[in-house]
């Protein structure tokens, strides 16, 4: 049943990010994917630019590599709480709410982002992957910086 399969996929997705296994994060996507972080206001206005915009699997891997070796930011981690998906009538799209807390190295834990994933999925060799994951944050305000993907 699709609901269970999606819940399982999202649980694994959250686990990969929250346990710092970022190298496995791109594997949740097909190669010709679109991953974008935007906000409700930008999405409503039809603005195409995200704060993260990756339209190839290579760009997702470049993002992880940059976080590992290039970018300067303080050590931090996320805790994703991903809600139940509302599945589209085509069974291969879904809208799923999420909340993400960010834990900084000085111990401060704060609600960092809430929003909804707008997903399109594809199944290859029995495995579900994201063709599209548009991360629509409820707010357009981001505290300090966004390093780790949502």
């Amino acid at each position: 049943m699709m609901l269970l399969r999606l819940a399982e996929l999202n649980a694994a997705y959250a686990q990969a990010i929250d346990t710092d296994q970022l190298e496995s994060w791109p594997d949740f996507f097909v190669e010709d994917c679109l991953y974008k972080i935007t906000s409700a206001d930008n999405h409503k206005a039809g603005y195409a630019a995200g704060i993260v915009y990756a339209d190839t699997g290579a760009m997702l891997r470049d993002r992880v590599n940059a976080l590992r070796t290039a970018n300067i930011y303080e050590r931090q981690s996320y805790r994703h709480i991903i809600g139940l998906p509302v599945i589209g009538t085509d069974q291969m799209s879904a809208e799923t709410p999420f909340m993400v807390a960010r834990i900084m190295r000085d111990g401060k834990t704060a609600l960092f982002a809430t929003g909804v994933y707008l997903d399109k999925l594809r199944e290859t060799n029995g495995k579900l992957r994201f063709v599209q994951r548009i991360v629509v944050c409820d707010s357009s305000y981001f505290d300090t910086l966004l390093a780790i993907p949502l």
């Binding site: 630019a49 704060i51 915009y53 940059a66 930011y73 981001f142 300090t144 910086l145 390093a147």
Partner: peptide, 20 residues
């Protein structure tokens, strides 16, 4: 432009560093 904008903004490969 959409791709190059990955350098700027709150999550920019460059600009996130100016954020902190």
């Amino acid at each position: 432009r959409l791709r190059h904008l990955n350098l700027g903004g709150p999550a920019g490969f460059v600009s996130m560093e100016d954020g902190c």
